[in-house]
C-alpha cells in the first residue's frame, strides 16, 4: 500500500516536472531562424510584384509568413539607424528586402559593395505588400 502511494507520488512529480519544463520551453521558445529555413518558393522579384499587384488577397494567402528566395535588379539601398534595406526593380512598388541589424553589421562589406543595377538574390520571410515599399521581405539573407 505504502509502496503504491510512493509510486503514484513519484509519477505525479515527474509529470508536473515535465509539464513545467514544457510550459517553460514554450514560453521561451526561440524565434524562427529564416536563414536556416528552406525556401518554399523560388521566383523573380518581377513575378512576385506581378502576383501581388494582380490579386493582393490571393498573393497574401499564398506567400504570407512563407520563406521566399527572390532574385532581381537592385535599384536602391537604404542604410539608416533602423536597419539595412535593399529595393528590387522599383523604388516604390518593387520588392523591399530588410536585413536584421546583426546580419547587416556582420555582412556590411558585402552589402555595401552592391551597386544599383546589380542582380541580387535574397532569402526572406514575406510580410505582405505596403504602400511606398512594395512587397516586403524581412529577416533577409543574401544567397
Amino acid at each position: 500500500m505504502n509502496q503504491k502511494i510512493k509510486i503514484i507520488l513519484v509519477v505525479l512529480l515527474l509529470l508536473a516536472l515535465a509539464g513545467g519544463y514544457t510550459a517553460y520551453y514554450m514560453y521561451n521558445k526561440p524565434h524562427r531562424n529564416i536563414a536556416e529555413e528552406k525556401a518554399e518558393f523560388i521566383l523573380t522579384a518581377t513575378k512576385l510584384i506581378e502576383e501581388f499587384t494582380n490579386d493582393e488577397a490571393m498573393a497574401n494567402q499564398k506567400y504570407l509568413d512563407k520563406v521566399l528566395l527572390v532574385s532581381g535588379k537592385l535599384v536602391e539601398k537604404n542604410h539608416s539607424e533602423t536597419g539595412y534595406t535593399i529595393l528590387f526593380e522599383d523604388e516604390f512598388e518593387g520588392v523591399s528586402a530588410t536585413f536584421d541589424s546583426l546580419y547587416a553589421a556582420q555582412n556590411k562589406a558585402m552589402l555595401d559593395a552592391y551597386t544599383n543595377g546589380d542582380q541580387v538574390q535574397v532569402k526572406g520571410k514575406c510580410d505582405g505588400m505596403l504602400m511606398l515599399q512594395g512587397v516586403i521581405l524581412s529577416k533577409c539573407v543574401v544567397e
Binding site: Y27, N28, H31, G128, L130
Partner: peptide, 18 residues
C-alpha cells in the same frame, strides 16, 4: 496623413507572444 504598417512586421521579444 496616411500611415500604413504590416502586422507581420511587428517584432516581439518572445516568439510565443508574436
Amino acid at each position: 496623413i496616411v500611415v500604413s504598417v504590416l502586422m507581420k512586421s511587428f517584432e516581439f521579444e518572445k516568439a510565443l507572444m508574436q
